[in-house]
């Protein structure tokens, strides 16, 4: 139990997907102009993250890994399909996003309208696929995978809402013209990353 809590804290703060690995930077920079949209996107990312990563874990363990197909027929015991991981992972994510989109549209049209284009764009948010790939590389078990994906999602949510808040303030700042927009956003992300580095001092 303590181990899982550590994993969660680590995924949110110490190894924040945005500040430590630069994952999901595209939408992070593009959608962080207003707190409200950032909030919506962050929530959607958390949701897709905790849906797809455990799903990908199951696909990896029961279909792709070396010998994973043995449950179908013993003769398949030495089939290793791990090289198909990228294609299956991204298909799962694209499919899950599509389902989430349809569900949200059907049951809560208000949320659907406020999220707009950002919902389908989650498919190509690097942080989602990145979390699945980290799960594969670090060989988590199922519970760890679920906790890790929740942590990564919350980490992204936290990062994008924080940056949006800072950028709303920046509108009143006097920044040199060539640095406005993307340039200053990069540097602020760097500074926030440095702040998040202080969490690595936590003993877990």
């Amino acid at each position: 139990m303590e181990h899982l809590l550590n994993l969660l804290i680590k995924a949110i703060f110490v190894e924040n997907v945005v500040f430590a690995f630069f994952l999901g930077m595209c939408s992070f920079l593009a959608v962080s102009k207003k707190i409200k949209t950032a909030f919506g996107l962050g929530l959607a990312v958390i949701f897709v993250m905790i849906l797809t990563t455990p799903l990908n874990y199951l696909i990896l363990t029961y279909l792709l890994k070396d010998g994973a197909l043995a449950w179908i027929h013993p003769s398949l015991a030495n089939v290793d399909l791990t090289f198909l991981a990228f294609i299956l992972f991204i298909s799962t994510i694209a499919g899950a996003v599509q389902i989430v989109e349809m569900a949200v549209e059907k049951f809560t049209p208000a949320l659907y309208n406020s999220l707009g284009i950002f919902l389908p764009l989650i498919t190509v948010n690097c942080s989602i696929l990145g979390t699945s790939l980290f799960m594969q590389e670090r060989e988590y078990n199922f519970v760890e995978t679920a906790v890790f994906s929740l942590g990564a999602g919350i980490g992204f949510f936290l990062a994008i809402v924080l940056l949006a808040a800072i950028r709303e303030r920046l509108r009143y700042a006097n920044i040199p013209a060539p640095l406005q927009g993307l340039g200053i956003a990069m540097i602020i992300t760097g500074l926030m990353g440095m702040a998040f580095l202080s969490f690595s001092g936590i003993q877990l």
Binding site: F22, P178, Q180, G181, L182, G183, I187, M194, L197
Partner: peptide
């Protein structure tokens, strides 16, 4: 550390846009 990459790109954008004025305020 990771933040250094962001600083370098930020400064790179700054220099590029100072030289190439038509890029200012693209985004």
């Amino acid at each position: 550390l990771p933040p250094a990459a962001l600083f370098i790109i930020g400064v790179y954008i700054w220099i590029q846009r100072s030289i190439n004025k038509k890029l200012v305020n693209v985004s």
